[in-house]
Write a protein that binds this DNA or RNA. Structure first.
Lengths: 140, 140
DNA sequence: TATCATTTGTAGCGAGTGCTACAATTCTGC
DNA sequence: GCAGAATTGTAGCACTCGCTACAAATGATA
C-alpha cells in the first residue's frame, strides 16, 4: 500500500538499506567530528572512512545535492538541519545496537565492529526489542 | 599481521562484507532451490532476489569464475563443492541470527527481513553469544 | 515438425564507490 | 609576500549491480 512492490522482497530491502548507509555514515561522522574538533574537513572523513579524499569529495557533493550537507570549495563540511536530524537518528540507533551487543556479552571490539554493519539493517521492531533487553539487563 | 591495514577500519570491514554478501546470498538461494525443486534456473534466482535475469546471469558468471557455481549456457545452475560448503555456512549463520531475533521477541516478518541484512555483518563472537542466548531461552 | 511461449544470453546504458595522477587552492613559516 | 607543504578538486579508469531492448536457444504443443 505504501511501499513499492519490490520493497516486499527482503533482498530488495537490503539493497535499499545499503543505498542509505553511506549518507548515514557520512552524516554521523561529520556530526561527531564537528562536535569534537569544531570543524570537519574532507581529509578527516577520508581518514575515518578509510578511503581516498577523492571518494569523499564525490560523496560530499552528492550529499550536498540531497540537502544533508553544506560546503564550499576548499572549505570545511557542515550539516544542514536535515543532516543534523539524520545524524541524531543514526547516532541513537547506533548507540542502541552497540549497547545491546555489549549487554549480550559481546566483547567491546567485536561489538563496535559489528554494530557498524548491523545498525543499518535493524528495523524498528528489532530496535525496540533491543532497547527493552538493555533495560532489563541494566535493571537487574 | 594477517589482514591488510584497511581491514582495521570498521567501515572498510563493512565494505568487504558487502562484497561477500552477493556470493553468499546467491549460493544459499541456489542450494535452497535445488533441495526444494531439484534444480535452480536463472529465472528462479531472478524471482528470489527481486532483480532482472540479466543481473542474475552476470553474477552467476562471476560466481562460476570464483569456483562456487557450475553451469552451461541455457542450463540450470548448480553448486560446486566449495559452493555447497559456503551455502552450508551461510545457512547456519542465517538460522542462528533468525532464531536469535525470534527468541528476542521480534515478530516473524520483521525477524526474517532484518536477518537478511544482519547476517552478513555478524562476527564469530557475536554469533556465539546469539547461539548461547537461544540455548538459554529454549532451556527455560 | 513447425510455431509460439519461455528462458537465457548479449549489447549498451546509468548510478555508486573505489583508485591514481595531476591541477588548483589554501595554509604555514620564513 | 612568497615558497613549499597540505588540502581539495578534476580527469579518467575499474568494478559491481541495477535496467531495457533485442537476439538466440530451449521447450511445449498443435
Amino acid at each position: 500500500m505504501s511501499e513499492p512492490v519490490k520493497r516486499n522482497n527482503p533482498f530488495a530491502k537490503v539493497r535499499a538499506d545499503h543505498a542509505a548507509e553511506t549518507a548515514e555514515d557520512y552524516v554521523e561522522a561529520v556530526s561527531d567530528m564537528v562536535h569534537r574538533t569544531g570543524e570537519c574537513r574532507v581529509r578527516d572523513l577520508a581518514k575515518i572512512m578509510g578511503v581516498s579524499h577523492v571518494t569523499v569529495t564525490r560523496i560530499v557533493t552528492r550529499l550536498q545535492e540531497q540537502g544533508l550537507i553544506e560546503t564550499e570549495p576548499y572549505r570545511p563540511v557542515r550539516l544542514t538541519s536535515s543532516g543534523e536530524k539524520l545524524a541524531a537518528n543514526s547516532r541513537q540507533r547506533h548507540e542502541i545496537v552497540l549497547q545491546f551487543l555489549l549487554a549480550l556479552g559481546v566483547p567491546q571490539d567485536d561489538a563496535e565492529r559489528d554494530t557498524e554493519g548491523i545498525e543499518h539493517h535493524v528495523g524498528q521492531a528489532t530496535l525496540d526489542r533491543m532497547a527493552a533487553f538493555i533495560r532489563e539487563r541494566s535493571g537487574d
